[in-house]
Simulated scan of single mutants.
Amino acid sequence: MDRHPHWEDDALARARWDGDMMHFNADLPKIEALLQDILDGRLKNDDEIQERAAPFWGDAQGAWYTVGYEMAVLVMKHDGKAGLDASLLDPRQLLSRYDAIASEANAKGATLARWTPGLLEKLGVKSPVPDVDFGQIPPKAR
Rank of each mutant, 00 (worst) to 15 (best):
R3E: 03
H4M: 11
P5S: 06
P5K: 01
H6Y: 15
H6K: 14
W7F: 09
W7R: 13
W7K: 07
E8D: 14
E8F: 13
E8Q: 14
L12N: 07
L12M: 10
R14E: 10
R16A: 05
W17H: 12
D18Q: 02
M21T: 04
M21S: 03
M22C: 07
M22T: 11
H23S: 14
H23I: 14
F24D: 05
N25L: 13
A26H: 09
D27W: 07
L28V: 09
L28K: 09
P29R: 10
K30R: 15
K30I: 15
A33K: 10
A33L: 13
L35P: 08
D37S: 08
L39E: 12
D40H: 14
G41K: 09
L43K: 11
L43W: 12
K44F: 15
K44G: 14
N45Q: 14
N45T: 12
N45V: 14
N45C: 10
D47T: 10
I49F: 13
Q50F: 14
E51C: 12
R52I: 05
A53D: 13
A53C: 11
A54V: 12
P55G: 06
P55C: 05
F56V: 12
W57Y: 12
W57P: 02
A60S: 15
G62K: 03
Y65F: 10
T66M: 00
M71A: 04
M71T: 02
M71F: 03
M71Y: 00
L74E: 04
L74M: 01
L74Y: 02
V75Q: 01
M76W: 10
H78V: 00
D79A: 03
G80A: 04
K81T: 01
A82T: 04
G83F: 02
L84Y: 02
L84S: 01
S87Y: 02
L88E: 01
L89N: 08
D90E: 09
P91L: 09
P91C: 08
R92I: 01
Q93V: 00
Q93R: 01
L94W: 02
S96F: 04
R97T: 00
A100L: 05
A100Q: 00
A100I: 00
S103E: 12
E104F: 13
E104N: 12
A107W: 09
K108L: 13
A110R: 14
A110E: 05
T111N: 09
T111C: 09
A113V: 07
R114H: 04
W115A: 06
P117S: 06
L119Q: 07
E121P: 07
E121K: 12
K122Y: 09
V125Y: 12
K126Q: 13
K126F: 07
K126G: 14
S127G: 13
P128N: 00
P130W: 02
P130S: 05
D131N: 09
D133G: 04
D133M: 01
G135L: 05
G135H: 03
I137Q: 02
I137M: 00
P139C: 06
P139H: 10
K140S: 11
K140C: 11
A141D: 11
R142V: 08
